[in-house]
Amino acid sequence: MNDAQFFDRLKEIISPYVQNQEAFTDLKEDTRFIEDLQINSANLVDVVLDVEDAFDIEIDNDSMEKMLTVEASLKVIKEKLEG
């Protein structure tokens, strides 16, 4: 899976939880989940669970807390996949 495919897969995962569609349309690596996409804090946990399922990885609480932007989330996913 290349970087663009990781990005697209993550975009697909967060899609159901996004409340600011304008920011989602213009999704970038530095897009923030809460402030820009207006994903509520309870749904951030859903994003983490969906990421775990999609990539067959386990995300510990310390890593979960870092997943506040697209870029940070992709970094966590790649780190977990590299094991």
Binding site: A42, V45, D46, V48, L49, E52, N61, M64
Partner: peptide
């Protein structure tokens, strides 16, 4: 705030 499955509920709860 309902869950699709018991498993999802407990996975979510363990994160929180």
């Amino acid at each position: 705030s309902a869950f699709d499955s018991e498993r999802r509920f407990w996975r979510y709860s363990q994160k929180v």
